[in-house]
């Protein structure tokens, strides 16, 4: 009988350790990103880093301004949301309010598979198919533009928006729908005036999480956005994002050098921003779950 209690205590401690690993991992990520990045700021001012418009890490003297990359990331993410939000919420409403039960799972599975396609594959598809097509249609000097990156990221962020929003739509109690229908509202009016308002915080959380997905995406952007920091950025010219910069330059940056540290600092900025987005998203989603 001593043995019985012992096994239980041991398992409890082990599983506690497993659970704590995720926290430990997050802590180590934070620690090591900043440990590698911080020495940069003894040579470069924080303001100059964040708001400097020139990124020339290998010139002499080097210049580490990430503003063009931040702008590039922002532009591409904004474009992606223009695609992902209307389509994602449309899909969520279509699944939750229009489709009959039997087809729901099929569309949901399709959305999941869309989320499962690896980002290099999207990048490759954009590079060899969509890019050249856009170039021809719009008569551009190159197909590798912010527009192309935004389109692809939009498709990649769509499943995130759709699945979170769909949960929110499913969480709206049927009694609300019935009440509205009983008053003589059409299904469309019910969806538009009752279901959507009730699900709006959940949908908003989905948008935030989708935004996090888009801004952190690396390979697709790296392959299709042209990677030149054109200033000011526009949809029809190439752009360079924070993620692509890190992926592209890390191989050439000598370990421990300023360039190496600057790339970690870019990673740190990205990390903090996405963390903030997720935190706000979780808070909003939490409020939804509590029914506020």
């Amino acid at each position: 009988m001593k043995k019985r209690g012992l096994a239980d205590r041991v398992v409890k401690v082990i599983t506690w350790g497993c659970a704590s690993c995720s926290l430990l991992g997050l802590g180590l990520i934070t620690l090591f990103l900043f440990r590698e990045a911080v020495p940069l700021f003894s040579r470069v001012s924080f303001g100059g880093f964040l708001f400097g418009a020139v990124w020339r890490p290998t010139s002499d003297p080097p210049s580490f301004g990430i503003l063009p990359m931040v702008a590039g990331s922002a532009l591409v993410t904004f474009g992606a949301l223009l695609v992902a939000v209307p389509f994602g919420i449309g899909v969520a409403l279509f699944i939750g309010e229009v489709l009959p039960q039997g087809f729901r799972d099929l569309l949901k599975l399709s959305v999941e598979i869309l989320a499962g396609i690896p980002s290099v594959v999207y990048g490759f598809f954009g590079l060899v198919v969509v890019g050249p097509w856009l170039q021809g249609v719009l008569g551009l000097p190159t197909g590798q533009t912010a527009l192309l990156a935004a389109l692809l990221l939009g498709v990649m962020a769509l499943p995130t928006v759709a699945s979170v929003a769909e949960d929110a739509v499913a969480a709206v109690p049927d009694s609300l729908r019935e009440a509205s229908l009983a008053l003589g509202a059409t299904p469309w009016q019910t969806m538009w005036r009752v279901v959507l308002p009730a699900a709006k915080s959940g949908a908003f959380a989905g948008v935030l999480l989708g935004m996090g997905r888009a801004i952190g995406e690396t390979m697709t952007v790296l392959m299709v956005s042209g990677n030149s920091p054109v200033w000011p950025p526009s949809f029809l010219s190439p752009v360079r994002t924070m993620t692509a910069t890190v992926a592209l330059e890390m191989a050439e940056a000598p370990v421990g050098g300023l360039h190496y540290r600057a790339l970690f600092a870019v990673g740190g900025v990205l990390f903090l921003f996405v963390l903030l987005l997720n935190l706000v998203g979780e808070l909003v989603a939490h409020r939804v779950r509590r029914g506020a």
């Binding site: 991992g25 997050l26 996090g212 993620t243 890190v246 970690f264 990390f271 996405v274």
Partner: peptide, 22 residues
């Protein structure tokens, strides 16, 4: 732990790459 798991789920893949390197 819950916050940690959610935060970890949102970390961009390139940041995992940087962390793995460091």
């Amino acid at each position: 732990v819950r916050v940690g798991v959610n935060a970890l789920a949102g970390v961009p893949s390139i940041v995992f790459g940087l962390f793995g390197l460091a």
